[in-house]
Amino acid sequence: MKITDFLGGKVTYIISHLTVMAVTVAMLVALNPAGGKIFSIYIGILYIIAAIVPLFAEYRRKREYYNLLVSGFERLDRKNLIAEIIPEPDFFEGKLLYGILKASNKACLEEINKYKELQEEYREYIEMWVHEIKTPISSSKLIAQNRRDEATDSISEELDSIESYIEQALFYARSNSVEKDYIIKEISLEKPVYAAIKRNSKQLIGAGISVSAENLNVSVYSDSKWLEFILDQLIINSVKYAREKDAFIRIEAKELSNSRMLIVSDNGIGIPENELPRIFDKGFTGTNGRLRGKSTGMGLYICRKLCEKMGISISAESELGSGTAVSIVFPRSSMTDIL
């Protein structure tokens, strides 16, 4: 708060005092009292001092308070919590605004909490729904399995894809949840990788894609189920965008100086360079997705969200026409330090 800004707001006060002083001095000079002109000027100076002192006192008080407010606000991460950190001012306008700010903050937080609760409720519902629907899917699968012919085999395949969409919905709900519903512990990469490959074995074998999964006896810190879901999505993508002949998917682990990396690479149709930065965005389908008409633009978005929550990073490299590689980086030192 600058002095000029402060005085700018006091223009009427200053003008009125100056005018009154000028008139008083002029009147005194005209009356020509015993003390002469010196006395009149003396009175004028006294008047100015009396007018200026409270002005400066007020300035200092307000400057102190508002500077505290501004610097506190700048340092604050969640700006909507400002009312919680500032002290109550001791001047009237300040008190008024402080009260309003407090109340407004409170209303704002209540509103936020309301939506948090709604979202949490919704997530719980989705979670419950997903578990409910798995029972009829299970029984349908068994029924189809027990009466195997061309029709039921094809129904089984459809059931598999229903299952994978349902899984996606579940993880989407989880990725947005504020609750921590995952367990990060030391796991071997083998387990989730093998599980994800097996889960997609029908599609992989059907599409004639060869799979190599090597050097995976490496431990990382992650939630096994979440990682399995992420790998599932990556494999589904590789199958979706595979080349017609001699397609392969390679899953390998790499050791870096302070992290471990899991790379899922394929020799599929690849992603155009200008679309690459957006593939992890919500709802982004890209040229490939539109051409093949099966993309929801959700898979990779959910992967990124899940990775963010687990504190691991995911990125992709690709060359149009020759393949895509998605790498997941598990930081080592920082994770092990925490645990």
Binding site: Y194, I197, K198, S201, K202, I205, G206, G208, I209, S210, V211, S212, A213, F248
Partner: peptide
């Protein structure tokens, strides 16, 4: 062949057609 491959895959032997 598909069945055979799936059987092998279930034991973590991810063989392809040529293999």
């Amino acid at each position: 062949r598909d069945e055979l491959m799936r059987y092998l895959w279930d034991s973590e032997l991810f063989v392809d057609d040529n293999t």
